[in-house]
Amino acid sequence: MEHQSKETKFFNMTLLLLAGGAVLVAAWDVAVSRFRGGTDDLFFVLVALLVALLFATPPILFGIRTGWFHEKFVIDDEPPATEAAAEAHAEAHGVEGESHGVSNRLFILVWIALLGLTGLEVLLGYVQLRNDLMLTILMGASIIKAALIMAYFMHLRFERMSLVLTVVPAIVVCLCLMLILFPDSFRLFHLR
């Protein structure tokens, strides 16, 4: 048993490393070419990311199956005794406790983070970066913001993992699929 789990761990780590490598390759291409090659680069990056996804799937599934994600990222329905005590303490001091074992302070922190990210975005606009860099950073920041909103404001983090796995991949897959439109638009531009 022990032996087997070691093997699985090794296998998963290798796959994760490979996935990381693929992401690095994609990042490298973006950094070097900055999409000067048009659709070719876009394709290269997309393929590299797909490969990364492929490599990362078994470890992720493994993580889900063994409840690793659940432990790491999901606060349990019933908080352990010590946390409950902490919450009671907080409540006594006038900070609102939440039925999920999360205080409103957390939400305020999230709100501040969102404001901070927005501020950063606006600042970038003020500095006026190059367009492609700007786009990358802005979309990155926006995805983080969206994740924060979904996870905390929309309580997804406190729901069951199965709900997250139902909602998020469907949206992500469909939206990513629509990216296939872009080779066309680049081509149209080159034809103009």
Binding site: T39, V173, P183, D184, F186
Partner: peptide, 21 residues
């Protein structure tokens, strides 16, 4: 079924490489 819509557009003038996919 979500991945294949382009097969209706093979000769619409879209990027031929996407056609292959």
């Amino acid at each position: 079924g979500f991945f294949v819509w382009g097969h209706h557009m093979f000769i619409s003038g879209m990027d031929p490489r996407t056609g292959m996919m």
